[in-house]
Design a protein around this nucleic acid. Sequence first.
DNA 1: ACCTGAACACCGTTCAAGT
DNA 2: ACCTGAACACCGTTCAAGT
Lengths: 205, 205
Amino acid sequence: MTADSYRAREPLTPELVLDAAMAIVETDGVEALSMRRLAGDLGVRTPTVYWHVGGRQEILDKLIDRLMNEFGRLRPRGKTPAARISSLCMALLREVRRRPHVIAVSRTAGRGEAIFTRAQEKIAREVEAAGLHGREAAFALRTILFQLGGFIVVEFGIAADTSLHGVNRWQAADPELRDELSHSIDIDEVFRFSLDAVLARLLPS
Amino acid sequence: MTADSYRAREPLTPELVLDAAMAIVETDGVEALSMRRLAGDLGVRTPTVYWHVGGRQEILDKLIDRLMNEFGRLRPRGKTPAARISSLCMALLREVRRRPHVIAVSRTAGRGEAIFTRAQEKIAREVEAAGLHGREAAFALRTILFQLGGFIVVEFGIAADTSLHGVNRWQAADPELRDELSHSIDIDEVFRFSLDAVLARLLPS
DNA sequence: ACCTGAACACCGTTCAAGT
DNA sequence: ACCTGAACACCGTTCAAGT
């Protein structure tokens, strides 16, 4: 009834497999998602997982599709298009911080852009509302997405390391600068500053 | 004399091991760098590699140290600090493009910031030459590094995908915008524009 | 000092075979 | 339709043993 109840229960579904996969990723990270571990958590052998959803790559792809949709509920706030774009970016940033494993998953799956697919369209609408069209609008949209994507990826891939926080490996000319660099910094301030500077130049006042 | 000459030659050195590792990474990518493949290329068995340099992680770390130094020869050009910073960033970008495997290696090794360790100090000098000190200088340096790092990582991790080039997954409100987005774009233009906008706000005129 | 054989504990994936 | 056993071809790493 305990261990043997595996065989007695309902057949697996792709949804159950993906639930288990997501649970592994959330608790132990993408690197812990192996076919044997996943099958084990489901009380089944690896070929069964292949039968229901497919290999590791397919599972990662479907996890991303799931995660992507959770980033779809963002709504812009503010009066000016710049403010609304800014709010969209900050909201996306907050969402990514709440679910840091999303980035690891999308990188492993080779779909680093997945996070943006939902935001893209909404930002495009704001860019057009600001009065940009055609090539100008495309350029603005791209610049904003590079800004957002770059910031997220750097924050999660590099900022965790020592070198942007502590600069112990080189001596700054100015001891005062050196001292400031050893403190940690308000990362959001850097992002907001950059985004503002870029938006001010992109959008007509 | 042919196959058996392996045993007849000089003992291995860490340098030779790293040369072979670098060759694998350059031709077939980081994912092709396995201990067995590396040992095989050297005509030796895996424990020998461990004896000379260590495990995979150690090898990757030492490869990064090597690559890092190749990014040290950059010299700033231009009259104003802004121009000199801009030239440093563009030079670094060119270097990374010439050696795209550097990014893959530094990511695999979990040292995404490695590319910047050399540029950091030089940019700091320019920031101070522009008249910034203490906290202001630290903020400017960080903002510039985020800009540079983000751009590089996005270009290599995301721009290769379809979604920033082709936007086939959603319909833009404006068909003209949609058309523009399906064209590929001058990526450098996006970077230069963003960097200029940020520098203009960071540095005193 | 330098190198090997052999093993341990893992991977992703496939396929014939069972019910 | 759904699941297993068993295998294939890989991994990184360790360790006793050889010369």
